[in-house]
Design a binder for these strands. Sequence first.
DNA 1: GAGTGTGAACGTCTTCACAGCA
DNA 2: TGCTGTGAAGACGTTCACACTC
Lengths: 221, 221
Amino acid sequence: MASPGTPSPRVPEATIARLPVYLRALHELAEAGSGTVRSAALATAVGVGSATLRKDLSHLGSYGTRGVGYDVEHLVAQVSRELGVSQRCSVVLVGIGNLGRALAGYDGFAARGLAVAALLDSDPTLVGQQVGGLVVRHVDELPAVLSGSDINIGVIATPAGAAQQVCDQLVAAGVTSVLNFAPVLLTVPDHVDLREVDLSVELLVLSFHEHRKASRAQASA
Amino acid sequence: MASPGTPSPRVPEATIARLPVYLRALHELAEAGSGTVRSAALATAVGVGSATLRKDLSHLGSYGTRGVGYDVEHLVAQVSRELGVSQRCSVVLVGIGNLGRALAGYDGFAARGLAVAALLDSDPTLVGQQVGGLVVRHVDELPAVLSGSDINIGVIATPAGAAQQVCDQLVAAGVTSVLNFAPVLLTVPDHVDLREVDLSVELLVLSFHEHRKASRAQASA
DNA sequence: GAGTGTGAACGTCTTCACAGCA
DNA sequence: TGCTGTGAAGACGTTCACACTC
């Protein structure tokens, strides 16, 4: 894995992975005008058990009121702070194909405090075009784009063949976290965090269960 | 009552989630002409420990040769069979926006035996257009598209507001597995498998770690 | 010798049940 | 009374170390 040097995992990794989902639900509750929410209600809204939810939130601190529930607005602020999106958190997105455009226009980012601050591609016919309110710049301008900015997360949505080179360029330009959507395993220096997302994994997992269902149906026939 | 004569070899969920990644690496090895592969080599290629890899594969059966390794082609066949993609596995994709197009054209699907067999959208200006070799049909044609086909997995890439309705239509048309990319929690009947993918989760997890790094740097300064 | 297959140890996550507080 | 916060227990997953096979 990426960093074995994680000395004090104050918040469990499994909890961190659920915080974004909680945040989405909390934003919806806030927009709906809910002042407070009970753990059971929030838990069903995000599809986890209420005990899991309470334990997760307890890792951030005691932000609930016994007998009442959680103050929605306050909880949004606390979870946002924990995730590092209380101030604007900016990312650079490389690879403006269909997936890149989908990510650039993804409502879920802006709504939760994440800003796509720059779009890069190597295709000259794309450079200069406007996508989602931003002008696409050439990937060679990466150092210029990042110098003087507070961007330190890079998102790769290029074809598989270009991903490692783009990743190297991102790291060279000072990015310290990389999110890779290309279906290849990238290598990064130790000081860089890397996460891989394979869009076909979940579909194949479903296929597995589907296959099992079919097998069982046949066995009992 | 389950018949005692059918020993269901339960494969851990964590293992299932890794099989698609193994399959990708194995396909690459097969194309590169490797006849056999050792657990250590395959493990580093996919970013897990060799012990984890061997235990995972052992859940499928004893397909390795001690002192030698695994036969790549044979392993591809076994993992594909376990994932249910040894025969063609077809899915219907609803929502042909940027994300839908990205999924329709995703190399990782076809390469691993998954076929996107139908594209649906509710936008009349999209219906009839050709995307990735398929003609987009109207979402109301769903029952017609699914009747007489072997499709039983539906993929939702619509805006959040339309997702639940589309999901209900998919279920009504006989789909038994749903993969949802829209940022809402869907509800389905018990007999339907549902998996939710939120594209912003991984990015927010990275943001969390970035935030922690920044906090630590400041603390030690 | 080399590398798989696997019980056993270890660590992590989830669930339970209830203490503690408004 | 009602709901949060949390130790304790149990389920699950990973890692280790070595027996076993080619």
